[in-house]
Structures are given as structure tokens and as C-alpha cells.
Design a protein around this nucleic acid. Structure first.
Lengths: 336, 336
DNA sequence: GTGAAAGCGCTAACAT
DNA sequence: ATGTTAGCGCTTTCAC
């Protein structure tokens, strides 16, 4: 069975000590050029690769970072992951992706699994279900480098990367108002998420700025982030069944936008359905739904920046006490 | 800094030897019940978790499996990954996902990285660009457990899981013929992929069965699997520019279906565009493009089965010499 | 029923 | 410039 060549093997074959080999391979200045060449040549010829596990044990570093997201089958997150990977690989880090499927239980399990010394740091986007943050705070206190992205945890002191949610929301809602829509519903994400509140604020601010009354009855939350289509369908049905017909719905997330459009599609019987506008990073939606105006987050860039900050955290010699909260701008695309 | 409690710590605190603690925690029969209880209680109270890295080094097993796919932002693959995860986790394995973005170079890099003792086995779907298989054959010969899925490597003797590509293709093409389409183009994937050939065969067989001439000029390959939209646009343009107008296009993959529909969307100026039918596991496409008939692969199930076979391979005591090639059926959905 | 010791593959003081 | 040694955290043989 698969038994790769070790450093010791090389040492033996070459009649030198393991430490010499180790030093030669890490190009130490104290090793004779000739020995170095011999060792490197031999290693290359035999396809030697350092055992990363032994290395990790020794250095107490795994050179891998963990990413916690609700799901990868989501344009926003898969683009963000591409950004994370691009920076991680170029810095010699490996990326381990873990999906919570927006379940609190899975989040706890996955984070603990990763944290227990198999990753050097974590990039986390909270699950929609999570209300208790003990599992994260514990790790953070223990000193595990963590960077939050998109779905932030406000009161944990570390780097945070998101888009300017309030602003994005406000822009989109304002655009609906500009187009003459007055009764605008808001299909919101799970109530505990940072993004939910910020996006709600943006929506409300736009209404207020235009002297439109803010009504809680026009806001519908999806407690599982749209994880089961049923809750989205229910919300859409609620909106459609309202006595005072809705003019438009502003949708709070990528997944919900998809869910909402699907729901509306199933309910074709309704004539004059409300106009839909919302968050989406999906190219498909973008082009197939020509009347869908959307807010796009710079997902790739957000991933890159989060990773950059995490690597800084991991590699910093002294303890970091200054933390950044970065908010990137979103792009709003007005259609038709 | 993040310094978790070790087995040695427990031993010291309890005044027993490390070996006793180790045995107690693995519930060895030779340990006194009382000692066991003491140890387990202490471990739980202090949140002790075995260091997986040390464990891996010792056992020469990482309890993690690597997954190589072109990209996760793809309905088919993300569903397959969900299937892989579901079985892996319930068997105590961890899943590491690695994306090739259909680049040969990335594939080699990622596979080597994972293989070098940080995973116990690999589930691979080949990159579109890959024509040279040495990197995989080498690992396979060394005894690393590998299961292929979807994009198979024919002449490597190991388990393979795919859908019945020829059959699926044939069904879809036949359905186009049944609807009166005669001049049917085929937008194919990269020519080296197993699925490309099988799907091409199905397409051709359907034509032949209906006495329609098979013309190579009606087949267009996308060498990067649709990785850059440009090649898809070019192919679509080629089809649209043909003198004898095409009635329909049969599209060979999930990603290409998206690309093809997008391209067509951009080229709206053409009246009476050809009818599109093809592979797709996307719920969005499914519902937003009501006239799009599609073949859906049982992605989740394929992932599950591949994982099951891989775990068998990993855990089998004696060498496995009998290998399975599993082909699951696809579902064809006829629209409008 | 428990402990001592060796070793998984590697690196880094500490020799020489 | 190179070798010796100890140790990262764990399991497992061999003693007792």
C-alpha cells in the first residue's frame, strides 16, 4: 500500500543524517552546496514530498484555512470561495470548505471539527439558524484566528468583511420608488443575521426618505434563509394574498431571489404579480429574467480581502488588537 | 495562543500514564471501569478532543477524503457534493473539496497536494482540459484509493460511477426528433472527456435510428467545457450562421446549457432561434426557461454511491480486485 | 489493570 | 558543514 518515501529514507540512501536532508531541502545556508545538490536531486528523482501531516504536528500549523458557509450551490458564495482560493493558494494555504446548510447543529459540528487543530484559521459566514454564538466565542477567546464575512457576528472583536448592506438596500428600494411603486414588500432573511437587519434598515430608510409609511406587515422573514422552498412560497403567498395589493417586493438575498422567482413562476395564475427586485449574484437570473433589477455584491473581492486579513492574523508575530471592518460597495443594475 | 489540552495533560492531572488515558478514551476492555469513568469525565469537562493531526501521523490515515471537481458553482456538482458529504460525515470522514476550474495544471497541483498523505482517498471528476493521465495513474499504482465519477477515466482499474450517458442523450435527441426537428446540432463538451463521447454516441444513435444523416459539421466542441463563455458564444454563432438553418440544438452539459441559453439571449436579434434541449440539474433553468426540455442526472445519488465505494476501498483489509462500473438512469423532462 | 518506551515523519536546538 | 537528540500528540507493544 501507498507508502511514500520519507526524509529518513533519503538520509539513509545518501549516507547523511536526516537533519542534513531537512536543512538541504529548506535551502539552509549552513549546508554545503554540493550536499544540497545531491539531496535535492535525489529528492526530485524519487518524487519526494514532505509529509504535511508530520509537518503540521511539528510546526503546530496546518497551512490550511477553513471556510464555513451555508452552501456552495449559491452564486454569491461560490464566487466568494473562488476569491478565497485565489489568495489562499498563492500564499501556500489550502482551503477546506464546510457547508452548514444553514443548520445550527451542522455549524457547531463543522466549526469544532475544523478548529481542533486541523486549520490555522477560519473564515465564517454565519448560518441562518444560529442564535447562540458560544461555540465561536470560545474559539475566538482561545486565540484561533477568525475573519467574518458577509454574515457577521457584531460583538466578536476580529476582522469583518461585508458589503455595504444598508446602502445597497436603500439604493434598490429607492429605485423601486422612483419607478412609481409605493406598496413595497420586503422578503427578508433569518432575523438573527447581521445582513438581515442592515438590509431591512436600508429598505426602511428609503421608504422614510420618500414619506412612505413603514409597515411591519410588509416584511416577511425566512427563518431558514430560504433553505426549504416552502417557507419562501408561504411568504410569497402571504404577499399575494394581501388585500391592498403589493406593487413590488424587495428580496434580501441571492437564494431568496431565486426562491421568490420560482414561487412566482409556480403561481402564474396571478395576473399582474408584484415587481421583483433584490440581491443576486447569479448570471443566469441576471440574463434570463430581464425585468429583474438586482444588487450584486463584489463576492470574489470580499473573499480575497477576508483571506488576506486572515492570513495576516495567522502570520502576525505579536497579538493583533486593531481590527478592520470593511464594507465594499455593491452594484445596482436597473433593468428595463 | 490557542493551545488545546492534550492527552498528556489529562494523564498528569489524574496521576495516571498517557497510555491509560489513551486506552480509557478508546474504551479498552483492559481498563478498570472506575479509571475509565474518571478519565472520560475529566476529558469531557475539559472539552478534550484528540488531536487529529497526531492521530493521522500515527495511524497513517487522515479520515478525510478529497473531491476533485471542475467547479462547485454548478448545479450538478454541488448536488453531487451534497451526496458525498452526507455519506462521508455519517461514516466519520471529512470532505475536502478542490476545484480545477477545468485546468490541467490546477488538476495536477490539487491532486498531488491532496494525495500526499492528507487524504485517504480521492473522488475524481476529470477536468475538461486533461489529456495526460500520468498524475492519476501514478497515484493509482501506488495504491491510493480512487473512485471516478461523472467524468471517468476508462482505463484505470477502479470503481466508476456515472449516469447512463448514451441512453440519456439518445432519449433527449429522440424527443427532439419526435417533435418534428430534423436538423439537430450538438453542442459538445471537451473531446477528451468520457461523457463527451458517450453523449455524442447517444445523439448519433438517435439520428441513425430515424434515418437522419449524421454530419460532423453539426457537432461543435467546447474545449474548456464552457469555462470561458466566449467559446460557447462562438459555437452558438457558428450554429446560427449556418446556411441550412438548424431546427434544434442538443446541449451536452449543465454548464453548457446555461452558457448556450445566455448566448442565445444576447443574440436576440435572430428570429426563430433553434430549439434548445440538453443536460441540466439547475432548478432555476428548469423553471425560468419553460420551453427547455432537459435531462437531469441523479447527482446526489451519484455522489453517495461514489463515496460508499471509496470508503469500502479505503477500509478493506485485503486488496480489492473486483471493480464496479455503475451507471444510474437519468430523468428526461419534456416541456411544453 | 497499568506503565514505560518506541515510533509515526519532521524540525530545531545543541553539539561538534 | 554536519550529526545527535528531543519532541510535536498520539497509540501500541511489551513489561510488570
Amino acid at each position: 500500500m501507498f507508502k511514500p518515501i520519507t526524509l529518513k529514507d533519503i538520509a539513509q540512501s545518501l549516507g547523511v543524517s536526516p537533519s542534513t536532508v531537512s536543512r538541504a531541502l529548506s535551502d539552509s545556508y549552513e549546508i554545503n552546496e554540493k550536499t544540497k545538490d545531491r539531496v535535492i536531486a535525489y529528492a526530485q528523482k524519487h518524487n519526494y514530498i514532505k509529509n504535511p501531516i508530520a509537518l503540521s504536528l511539528r510546526k503546530r500549523r496546518s497551512y490550511s484555512i477553513g471556510v464555513i458557509v451555508c452552501e456552495v450551490a449559491n452564486s454569491f458564495f461560490s464566487q466568494a470561495i473562488d476569491g478565497i482560493e485565489s489568495l489562499a493558494y498563492s500564499n501556500g494555504y489550502h482551503v477546506i470548505i464546510s457547508q452548514t446548510h444553514d443548520s445550527y447543529k451542522r455549524e457547531v459540528l463543522n466549526i469544532e471539527h475544523l478548529a481542533n487543530r486541523s486549520v490555522d484559521g477560519l473564515i465564517i459566514s454565519m448560518s441562518a439558524e444560529t442564535k447562540d454564538f458560544a461555540h465561536i466565542e470560545k474559539l475566538h477567546q482561545k486565540g484561533l484566528p477568525i475573519v467574518f464575512f458577509d454574515r457577521i457576528l457584531e460583538n466578536v472583536k476580529t476582522h469583518k468583511v461585508s458589503s455595504d448592506n444598508k446602502e445597497g438596500s436603500k439604493k434598490a428600494t429607492q429605485s423601486l420608488i422612483d419607478r412609481g411603486f409605493k406598496r413595497i414588500g420586503h422578503l427578508a432573511n433569518a432575523p438573527h443575521l447581521s445582513i438581515t437587519n442592515e438590509r431591512l434598515k436600508g429598505y426602511k430608510e428609503a421608504l422614510i426618505a420618500n414619506n412612505i409609511e413603514v409597515k411591519d406587515s410588509l416584511v416577511r422573514y425566512c427563518h431558514h434563509g430560504g433553505g426549504n422552498q416552502e417557507e419562501v412560497v408561504n411568504a410569497v403567498n402571504y404577499f399575494l394574498a394581501m388585500e391592498d395589493k403589493l406593487d413590488a417586493i424587495f428580496v434580501a438575498s441571492d437564494r431568496l431571489s431565486v426562491g421568490c422567482l420560482l414561487a412566482l413562476n409556480e403561481l402564474k395564475k396571478y395576473k399582474n404579480p408584484p415587481h421583483i427586485s433584490g440581491y443576486s449574484n447569479s448570471d443566469i437570473l441576471d440574463l434570463l429574467q430581464p425585468e429583474f433589477s438586482c444588487i450584486r455584491q463584489p463576492a470574489f473581492e470580499m473573499g480575497r480581502i477576508a483571506t488576506e486579513l486572515l492570513i495576516q492574523l495567522i502570520e502576525s508575530k505579536q497579538e493583533v488588537t486593531e481590527f478592520k471592518t470593511i464594507e465594499l460597495s455593491t452594484t445596482f443594475t436597473q433593468r428595463q
